[in-house]
């Protein structure tokens, strides 16, 4: 546990530095910070290339890897920022993993960052599918492939569970947050409610609680 605590702290501490590097005028064309930015872009590309190449099932399967690479290892964003990006990525049209790659890239290194992250995320599947489509590889109805993917799903569910537990520590600060999380879970799992409604519901609860707090304070 102490490992996680430490990395969460260090992500916080590095935040000012990160903002400094990525702030304002730094872009691909300006000579002064060319080196820093190019390095960062290549790093973004390679992180998302790895995610694109090795995460199966899409969507939330990328969350544990994002947490590790973006928050813990590179301290590009805080846990809270990643959580917000996921909330937005799943409530708008498009593919969750591409949406979040673009958003993270944009936050870390502006528009070039978004382009490099998206390319990194897309390229592995592009290459693999091209290979399959042109070679007509027969992956289907293969007993071994089937077992491999059942194993992957089992360990992915474990990793996402750990990611959710870790995220809940930053996301849920008050008791009503637990209720929101539980209700969201039930709505999605048992009633098949679309993400956008869950997000809107959460936002309404948050705003209502904010107003309630303000009123309580002004009454005192």
């Amino acid at each position: 546990m102490s490992k996680y605590e430490y990395s969460w702290l260090s992500a916080r501490e590095f935040k000012p530095g990160r903002e400094f590097v990525s702030a304002g005028s730094c872009n691909l064309l300006s000579a002064g910070c060319d080196l820093v930015d190019t390095k960062k872009l290549i790093k973004l590309f390679s992180v998302f290339f790895k995610i694109g190449a090795f995460t199966f099932g899409g969507g939330y399967a990328i969350l544990p890897v994002i947490q590790r690479e973006v928050v813990d290892k590179n301290s590009w964003l805080t846990e809270e920022e990643v959580l917000d990006i996921f909330a937005i990525s799943q409530s708008i049209p498009g593919v969750i993993s591409i949406n979040s790659a673009i958003y993270i890239g944009k936050k870390v290194a502006g528009i070039p960052g978004a382009v490099f992250s998206a390319l990194g995320m897309i390229l592995p599947s592009f290459i693999v599918i091209l290979a399959i489509a042109s070679l007509i590889m027969n992956l289907k109805d293969n007993e071994i492939v089937d077992r491999f993917f059942t194993g992957i799903r089992a360990s992915a569910s474990a990793l996402i569970l750990l990611a959710a537990i870790k995220m809940s520590k930053t996301a849920i600060r008050e008791k009503w947050g637990i209720a929101v999380a539980v209700v969201s879970f039930i709505l999605v799992v048992f009633l098949d409610v679309h993400a956008i409604w869950v997000i809107i519901g959460g936002a309404v609860c948050g705003i209502a609680y904010g107003l309630f707090e303000k009123r309580k304070r002004s009454c005192k």
């Binding site: 959580l83 799943q90 809940s168």
Partner: peptide
């Protein structure tokens, strides 16, 4: 709003555990 969205997102991440 985000103070409410964050716990909702955690709930949805937990639902992905069930999916997998």
């Amino acid at each position: 709003a985000f103070k409410g969205i964050r716990p909702a997102t955690v709930g949805m991440i937990a639902s992905a555990v069930v999916f997998f």
